[in-house]
């Protein structure tokens, strides 16, 4: 068994171990790695902000192409900094209001389309299901099962009525569907997470300690 002589590989491996050490319990090594991680990732974000946004959308267009109009969003952005002046700190609400206006406006019809209409489309029973009514994926029986599952799940989320009588039965069937669905997600994720661990162990045992060839 040999070990890597590259100091950078050592650094990478040791820091990975520091992070893993949290699994045992919180300790100074993890604390160090965690703080380093925070610092570097924020530094990295600053670089992304500077190179990809400030430089591309502000500095270059204004300084090189003289698109002075971009000073308008710059000036509005400056309002964020009024937070530090108590009497004028409410001016910070203007860029926040712009943000909320834009994104809520964009989201409103988009959500109706993606989460409501598209889902209705997928749930609708149709004549093509008659062709092979007992097909386990596209048959009529499954179509009806899905529709029942969807409608019962919806009834679970009724807020303005007590879950009593028919609503209670339907909400109960709904929660069973929900739990089967969550179980499926759960089981599906197990393997994905294990493969992430295998990936990291591979690095440790191939590049750092040359245990696996």
């Amino acid at each position: 068994m040999t070990m890597s002589t590259d100091p950078w590989v050592w650094l990478a491996a040791l820091l990975s171990l520091f992070i893993f050490s949290y699994l045992y319990k919180d300790n100074p090594l993890f604390k160090f790695a965690e703080h380093l991680f925070t610092g570097l990732s924020v530094g990295y974000l600053i670089v992304i902000y500077y190179n990809n946004i400030v430089r591309s959308y502000l500095l270059n267009p204004v300084l090189a192409d003289h698109r002075w109009v971009l000073l308008v969003p710059f000036a509005i952005g400056l309002l964020y900094l009024f937070r530090f002046i108590p009497k004028l700190s409410h001016l910070m609400l203007i860029p926040i209001a712009i943000t909320l206006g834009i994104w809520n406006g964009i989201a409103l019809p988009l959500t109706i389309e993606a989460d409501i209409i598209r889902q209705m489309q997928g749930t609708m029973i149709n004549t093509s299901m008659f062709r092979n009514p007992w097909d386990p994926y596209t048959g009529l029986a499954v179509g009806i099962l899905i529709a029942v599952g969807v409608i019962c799940t919806i009834t679970y989320f009724f807020f303005s009525r007590e879950h009593k009588g028919a609503l209670k039965v339907s909400a109960h069937i709904g929660i069973w569907f929900v739990m089967i669905g969550f179980g499926a997600s759960f089981g599906y994720t197990v393997m994905a997470r294990v493969s992430l661990l295998i990936g990291r162990l591979q690095f440790m045992f191939t590049e750092w300690i040359h245990l696996i060839k």
């Binding site: 949290y22 919180d26 993890f30 790695a33 965690e34 991680f37 990732s41 924020v42 974000l45």
Partner: peptide, 15 residues
């Protein structure tokens, strides 16, 4: 503000 990094944030909150 902690950090934008998904796992950086997670390690910070764990801490």
């Amino acid at each position: 503000y902690l950090t934008d990094s998904q796992m950086g944030y997670t390690s910070g909150v764990n801490g």
